[in-house]
Design a protein around this nucleic acid. Structure first.
Lengths: 316, 316
DNA sequence: CAGAATACTTGACAATGTCAACAATATAGT
DNA sequence: ACTATATTGTTGACATTGTCAAGTATTCTG
């Protein structure tokens, strides 16, 4: 915890510097830094009220009022009367839009210059790191999630995350990590396109969970390695992953969908029940170190109705 | 690239807000924000010159001079004459140290409050994400690296990173990713403590590279999966990993250390040559999709001299 | 040793941010 | 409908923060 605080403070000092360097490029331009911030906010939330601007930027109301008067004098904005006669909705003029475009382009260039020397992988890593930091720091971020098929590197990342999370929450050790490695590697090795799939849920490009479907032969499919990142819980991502998986299985004509899970994973059990799975077997095993109660669940699939395809499931 | 710029700018706005909220906690305290920044810098780099402060914080020289005069009046600092009579080296007084301690504690508390609701795994993830972002953004950071044995989650992460990096740099596809998964999982499954090991190089807690040593039987050890992250190259991390590995092999009494590598990996070949490896076999294989020339290298190990142990190698 | 560079200070001023008072309007409770 | 209360936006007064250029004392360089 102390290390974490020190690291964050160190990053804070670093980023303050960096932001200062980026901002310095506006000095001497048409707009000052607070003006630029305000103009950006106006352009993004048009039409907005002075009050909304003040709140979202954390600026003083009087200060905002004065800057807006300046903008009006420069011909960047127009303020008329709203339905609520206290407010004066703000709209950008053509000149205002031009001023914004100029500032916007400069800011883009400044950032572009900063990451120009990074190769594509490094750029992806950077975006991922920043998005991850933000998701962890700001639980109120409400960006939605998306689900995509797996790509290079996902197998290892999924195995790593599940191993770490289960080690932390349930103390499952090397046994589980080996199983994770074996299952993900075997999936990749034997992958049957069109019959099997692994999906990854993402929030702002950050991996938020995953699920596998494998072909067990004889018309039976198996659902495996479902998980959702702690930071992403409570958004029904697990539901969406299971729906995607069931939709695919039904679509491809599988007769049953089976899964193994652990009795202690309460959230997962409720999820499976909700989706129509039924428990068909219970057995204690020692795969993860200490004895653990495993359960087998099964879902009988109706033949494809032509209504709910995997694609549709993705869109819900 | 455009997405990357948009993401970074979005993070920028977010972090500006966050930093503003953290800073707001100093208002009304004994020191103002720029004073706090300056005081922090003084405390960390004591004794320092006004010039150094001005440069490292990017503040105006006159501004710094005035704040320092204020600090002197408050009895926080003493300025005497240096060997260079133009400078006036700054030292904190007891009162200054107290003032700093108070501010420092407040800042710590502010950050602690921000991450209090995060569980330990999430805190680690956050620190990792921030450190990674910093390493990518600021190539001049010169923090050193350290080497540690593997821990939970390393196998998957190593497999993922190598798969992604080689896919990007050489186009090696699923074949390589499967090999990565198999090798890392097999290592974990058959791990013989004391005879085998995997080491991870870290910079500021961020994985910067890794290397494996496995027991091949008959007194032969095998070096596997050496890699160094692009952002970490040029710091002799590869050298240190190979040295660690050779030291361990020698220490444990192995007679030979063998490795497979690919002819196109020039940097690695030079590294192996430098450490005394000799190429003993060349063969084209098709494991990674397109045909690739693989090479076997070997190092004959002298019996342990008692001088260079694995522990010593770690400390270089 | 002259000229250039460096470390620091100071005056003048511009930009940025804060606070409280106030007018106009809206809302909630009776 | 009426009153107390809250909200939106404006303004004056002011404090803080940041910038620029000129100037002094000292050191460095050829």
């Amino acid at each position: 915890m102390n290390d974490a605080i020190a690291s964050i403070r160190s990053f804070n000092r670093f980023y303050t510097q960096l932001a200062g360097v980026l901002d310095a490029r506006f000095l001497g331009s048409e707009a000052t830094l607070p003006e630029a911030r305000l103009l950006f906010e106006i352009a993004v939330n048009e039409p907005g009220s002075a009050n909304a601007l003040q709140a979202s930027l954390g600026m003083d109301a009087g200060y905002v009022s004065r800057i807006l008067t300046r903008f009006e004098k420069r011909g960047w904005i127009i303020r008329d009367r709203g339905t609520d006669a206290r407010t004066r909705p703000i709209r950008l003029t053509e000149a205002g839009r031009d001023a914004f475009a100029l500032l916007d382009a400069r800011q883009r260039d400044a950032v572009a210059g900063m990451i120009a020397r990074l190769d594509p992988v490094a750029q992806t890593d950077l975006v991922d790191a920043l998005a991850r930091a933000r998701l962890l720091l700001d639980p109120t971020t409400t960006s939605g999630f998306s689900i995509r098929p797996f790509r290079t590197g996902d197998m290892g990342r999924i195995a790593a995350r599940q191993s770490i999370l289960y080690a932390d929450s349930h103390g499952w050790g090397r046994g589980l990590e080996v199983v994770e490695g074996e299952v993900t590697t075997a999936f990749l090795h034997n992958f049957k396109p069109g019959r099997e799939q692994c999906w990854v849920a993402e929030i702002d490009g950050v991996m938020a969970g995953s699920i596998f479907l494998t072909d067990e032969g004889g018309g039976n499919a198996r659902l495996r390695l479902l998980y959702v990142e702690p930071f992403a819980r409570g958004r029904r991502i697990g539901d969406a992953l299971v729906t995607t998986c069931i939709g695919f299985a039904r679509d491809k004509g599988y007769a049953t969908l089976t899964l193994w899970t652990q009795a202690v994973l309460e959230t997962a059990r409720r999820l499976y029940t909700r989706h129509g799975f039924e428990r068909i077997e219970t057995a204690v095993h020692h795969d993860f170190g200490e004895p653990v109660t495993g359960e087998r669940w099964q879902l009988r699939l109706a033949p494809p109705s032509g209504r709910e395809t995997a694609q549709e499931a993705l869109e819900t």
